[in-house]
């Protein structure tokens, strides 16, 4: 089933008056359950594309459809709720709220959804268990390693059973072994929970695992 469809999207930034076409006409179709890696050198437009898909930013031209809905027609509030219900984000670093523990970070998204406290505890505990990071439960981000933080970020991203997880360079700050474990985790979630994953990365390890590789260059799809 088709989850996302972009029609020739363009994102143009003004860099000191000079227009920069960060995304320069990308048409892409993503089906539910896919595992896609957007690969390309730094500055090729991967993050910009991911932010557009995640409705954090609006394309200058073109349309994005999510489950058939035109995202450009949604209000800010609707987009916020859309992200809360349907999406999960994992950034390169600093994903977690520093003053909250691992468990509270995970519960936070559930709280925003209005999940009752008892259920929040129960669900976050079992997910931490499932991801093998139960011992991090009461730790704050500054008491965790980078890899541990990213695992908690994965847990937070998937706790509300999103349709799509967008991961922007999730392994960039990790050594290859830790990165590998993190990718294992996400691959498992992709397979077991049928959550669609879109990665943006130029990390070889990520690219190798891609079940569908989309090469990006200068804001365009290079070849698939």
């Amino acid at each position: 089933m088709e989850l996302i469809k972009t029609e020739n999207i363009i994102k143009t930034y003004q860099d000191n008056g000079v227009p920069v076409h960060a995304v320069n006409g990308i048409s892409l179709e993503v089906n539910e359950g896919e595992h896609i890696v957007l690969a390309g050198p730094s500055g090729s437009g991967k993050t910009t594309l991911l932010n557009l898909l995640g409705a954090l930013d609006k394309p200058t031209e073109g349309k994005i459809f999510f489950e058939g809905d035109d995202l450009s027609l949604k209000s800010k509030k609707e987009l916020s709720d859309f992200r809360l219900h349907k999406l999960g984000f994992i950034f390169q670093a600093y994903n977690l709220i520093p003053v909250l523990t691992a468990m509270e970070n995970i519960e936070f998204s559930m709280m925003l959804l209005g999940v009752p406290e008892a259920e929040r505890h129960q669900r976050s505990e079992s997910l931490l268990e499932e991801l093998g990071i139960a011992e991090l439960k009461n730790k704050r981000p500054n008491e965790m390693s980078g890899g541990q933080q990213q695992r908690v970020a994965v847990a937070r991203a998937i706790i509300n059973n999103p349709k799509l997880v967008l991961a922007d360079e999730p392994t960039a700050n990790l050594d290859s072994k830790t990165g590998g474990h993190l990718l294992d985790l996400m691959d498992k979630m992709n397979e077991e929970k049928n959550i669609t994953f879109i990665f943006a990365s130029h990390d070889q390890q990520v690219i190798e695992r891609a079940r569908r590789l989309v090469k990006i260059k200068d804001g365009l799809v290079d070849n698939e």
Binding site: L56, K76, R83, L87, F89, S109, L112
Partner: peptide
């Protein structure tokens, strides 16, 4: 700022 960006990205409404 970065943290507020994360809160926005995970779908925290701006009035919250």
């Amino acid at each position: 700022i970065q943290e507020i960006g994360v809160l926005m990205s995970i779908g925290m409404r701006i009035w919250k």
